[in-house]
Design a protein around this nucleic acid. Structure first.
Lengths: 236, 236
DNA sequence: TGCCGCCTGTCAGGTGGCCGTAAGGCGCGC
DNA sequence: GCGCGCCTTACGGCCACCTGACAGGCGGCA
């Protein structure tokens, strides 16, 4: 979620313009939705298959995704689940023709924020978009900037130039540890205690391995080695 | 690293930790937070009502306030707004329950720097505290000026005109030794004891070598030779 | 239920930096 | 000139660290 827009999203009912990705292969329905949403003042991009959606999401950050569940190259649910698993927290509204409870539940379980059932009233879609916007405007997770990265602690996500970087549980805890004591050297013992609580029976170079993995995923300059003492966060 | 248990070897002996005021009436949550924050190395004071908080703030300066919004003698938002109106800029992190969305937004508008939603992960709280520390870090750690150098003992870093100068472990310990006894001649025996504890026998000109290395990295005038006695820090 | 993929902790090989030593040179005092 | 203390450079050994690889575990999915 681009921070520049957040100040407008005060949750007072005043919704700012959002950048929305519409994933829908049906031309007629898609065009209608796109026009309507654009009329509402939002910026909308269009994807007609999951692969196109993935490309778009890799390039830019969106405030909301409108996701059809049946695409030419796959189903929306696994797609959504996969993105959530990788740490992407972009709000999602599901557009589904399958008026079946199980699909809806699957969708919400997979991490969707809301759904509308086709055929739907465009005014209802506007209302749902507004609802999601309001919900997230009431939850403007503060972003922390670390070098080129934007960290959202509540969402447990970290992005570089809008692109989310998936971290595993341990990797995240480690990174969090560095964030909690900026500009300070953390010894391996301190980090071990943080990662494995007190029952630390880790008798290997696990810390080194996780530091290595973090560096590979983020940037090799993010974590600085202080020989003989430990590690510290690189640039502030 | 031999022994490594000397407090002055780690550079963490100097506290760059924050003084934090926790304003929270819930005993269980408050104790948990207080313990965890203390474990992070910060100093924490406890207030259970706004009146106590006001008293504490009148007596001492704090680096950070953790503020619950529902206190027995009033709400946190007006309290915060009042302090901001009076020019107090102490960073504030709001502790709020999930269902207090509007209060959260009011809180940020009232001048809070961040918030965490109860129930929150203590590790996340640590990270947010670190974040606030970094955001407000004009000087998170006390800087010592030695001639053209800026020394940050906690971060174990030394800079010249902003450019960091990397020091090895031994070099740093040696430099620290001079810093701890400014304007005083240190004999080679004293320095050896500091560098190699008591046990290790060093039968060479190691001290001379390290002094030379330090001079090359820093400046040839930083360490003065007192022939026959030892060395002393150059600049006053 | 069984299969498969991801996470996790461990290990070993490799490497680069740090460390202590030694040796040669310089300058000061005698 | 000579001795002594100090400075500097060079070098081999060692160790902290890095990273690729792998087996076990766990959960998701068919």
């Amino acid at each position: 979620m681009p921070s520049g827009k957040r100040p407008n999203m005060t949750g007072n009912g005043i919704e700012s313009d959002m950048r929305i990705l519409l994933v829908e292969d049906n031309e007629v329905l898609g065009n209608a939705v796109a026009d309507h949403v654009a009329d509402d003042g939002h910026t909308i991009d269009r994807a007609r298959r999951l692969s196109e959606a993935a490309d778009a999401l890799a390039v830019a950050a969106y405030d909301l995704i409108l996701l059809d569940l049946m695409l030419p190259d796959g189903l929306g649910i696994p797609f959504l689940r996969g993105r959530r698993a990788r740490g992407d927290t972009t709000p999602v509204i599901i557009l589904t023709a399958l008026d079946q409870i199980t699909e809806r539940i699957d969708g919400l379980n997979a991490g969707a924020d809301d759904y509308v059932v086709k055929p739907f009233d465009l005014a209802e879609l506007s209302a749902r978009i507004g609802s999601v916007a309001r919900r997230y405007s009431g939850n403007p997770n503060p972003l922390i900037r670390v070098g080129p990265f934007e960290v959202d602690l509540a969402a447990r996500s970290i992005r570089r130039e809008g692109r989310p970087i998936p971290l595993t549980a341990r990797e995240w805890v480690l990174f969090e540890a560095f964030l909690s004591r900026p500009n300070q050297v953390l010894s391996k013992a301190q980090l071990e205690e943080r990662l494995w609580s007190f029952d630390a029976e880790v008798e290997s170079n696990a810390i080194e391995v996780y530091v290595s993995r973090l560096r590979r995923k983020l940037d090799h300059t993010v974590i600085e080695t202080v020989r003989g003492l430990g590690y510290k966060l690189g640039c502030p």
